[in-house]
């Protein structure tokens, strides 16, 4: 099983090398005094990558253990949390989104609801004032706050 992962990776990387090479060949290069131009370097890299990938397919190395179903679900939850955090970051503002994101992450990493909510509230508010007042970073306050200010 672990051998298969590296072989698959090798094939994917050869695909990447081919893609890099094709893209490099398609570059339209204006006349310049540079005898190498922007194509050669990526082309060379693509060749090296392809050769190394072939070695990897022939002699696969070891992998870490892959997450099982339960861990995979948590992984997706973390990614979803981070994505939602990013999506709403400017819309709802730093405090609200951080409260949500921190609470959610805390929960996923094993805190009880109470602890997670407390961490979320404290971290969102304290870090907002720390960043904006002590460090002078401007953070999105969110559309909902602006009318209140």
């Amino acid at each position: 099983m672990k051998l298969a992962a590296d072989r698959l990776l090798g094939i994917v990387l050869i695909g990447l090398a081919a893609f890099v090479a094709v893209q490099a060949m398609q570059l339209e290069v204006p006349f310049s005094y540079d005898p190498v131009g922007p194509r050669a370097f990526p082309l060379g890299l693509a060749i090296i990558l392809a050769v190394l990938s072939c070695v990897l397919i022939v002699k696969p190395g070891s992998n870490e253990t892959w997450p099982g179903r339960q861990l995979g679900m948590k992984l997706l939850l973390v990614l979803a949390t981070l994505l939602v955090y990013a999506l709403l970051f400017t819309k709802l503002g730093f405090i609200i989104t951080s409260l949500l994101a921190v609470t959610s992450l805390s929960r996923i990493f094993g805190a009880s609801w109470g602890k997670a909510l407390l961490t979320g509230g404290l971290m969102a508010v304290v870090s907002y004032f720390l960043f904006t007042h002590a460090l002078g970073i401007s953070l999105p306050s969110g559309y909902w706050v602006e009318p209140l200010l």
């Binding site: 994101a101 921190v102 992450l105 805390s106 929960r107 094993g110 602890k115 961490t119 971290m123 870090s127």
Partner: peptide, 20 residues
């Protein structure tokens, strides 16, 4: 320090660091 405090802290620092 438990990870449920550490991880959200890193996430906030990462987001703020890139955003600012």
């Amino acid at each position: 320090i438990p990870r449920w405090v550490l991880v959200p802290g890193i996430a906030i620092l990462a987001f703020v660091g890139v955003f600012q």
